[in-house]
Amino acid sequence: MDAVLLQILNGLDKGAAYALIALGLTLVFGTLGIVNFAHGALFMLGAFCAVTFNKLMLISTKVEDTSVTLFKAFKEKPYLEIWFPEWGPLLIQYSVPLSILLAIPFMILVGYVMERGLIRHFYKRPHAEQILVTFGLAIVIQEIIKAVFGANPIPQNAPDLLSGSAAIGTWLGLSDALVYPYWRLVYLGFSVVIIFAVFAFLQFTTYGMVVRAGMRDRETVGLLGINIQKRFTIVFAIATVVAGLAGVMYTPILPPDYHMGMDFLVLSFVVVVVGGMGSLGGAVSAGFLLGIVQSFASMTIVKEFLPGIDQIIIYLVAVVILLVLPRGLMGRAGVMDD
């Protein structure tokens, strides 16, 4: 029972990251009809927003180390701690969640520039060319990050309060041995909030309604005198922000390095396609489904039974679903059928 619960949590957690990236991917596909291979790079950019923010917070100066009495010693002390001795250290500790504040405007800017500068020229081009140009862009972004931050992963810490493990077993009245890292629970909660926010935005606001209408029939919405293009650009920026935030919050779980985006991209693409191209609900549910399936497959009992299954299970599920359901779990007819 414990093991099962733990695997479900693990799966939800992994699935949360997949779902967030896949959500943005499919949002872009559903609105602009663009297959964006640079989406993984956006996830990575988000993660490096957290790194940058942390570095900014830690800009230091030399101060005299008073704890050393024998000789004059110096140590590095961040300006924040000097200026605000009360809550400076706290700010530094909470740099990861706080870097969301940096990530949102930055990712909106990146998304806007990318859409206006590059993507918009590719609406009418074949999907293969869209894939290729965004793939090239992903390489460029990746290499720039590598040139700036180096090739090694840069670990980020979760706030002390959240860096321990939650005694879930005790809360639920199960065994005490069942514990789970707080930060992963936070990530799960955060993803759920973001996913609901995106859905609520599309479902319950007039703006979202127009976007949904545009996804159905772009021309008619345009004929009604609505500048649908502008709204789609904003949707692209939203997708960018979602990917970026997913990256920011993921940094304490996985130290970011320049190729983390590519690693996630392939899986998220599988997730999107399994969910059905252009279907938001499909992407989210496929994300969680594949996450859970994967973590169950990596249980020792399962592995003894079917060796190596944990390595291929995601792809296996993807293949079976695609062969049985031609449009994925929730794909609409007429999307990507050509």
Binding site: V35, V266, F269, V270, Y315, A318, L322, P326, G328, D338
Partner: peptide, 28 residues
């Protein structure tokens, strides 16, 4: 198997098979 689907679905199927071969070559 893959040629039953077209477009991006075909791409993903071939990708999935290749990744499976890769992961299996590393493990089992």
């Amino acid at each position: 198997l893959s040629l039953r689907r077209t477009g991006i679905y075909f791409s993903i199927l071939t990708l999935a098979f290749a990744q499976m071969s890769y992961n299996l070559a590393y493990s089992v």
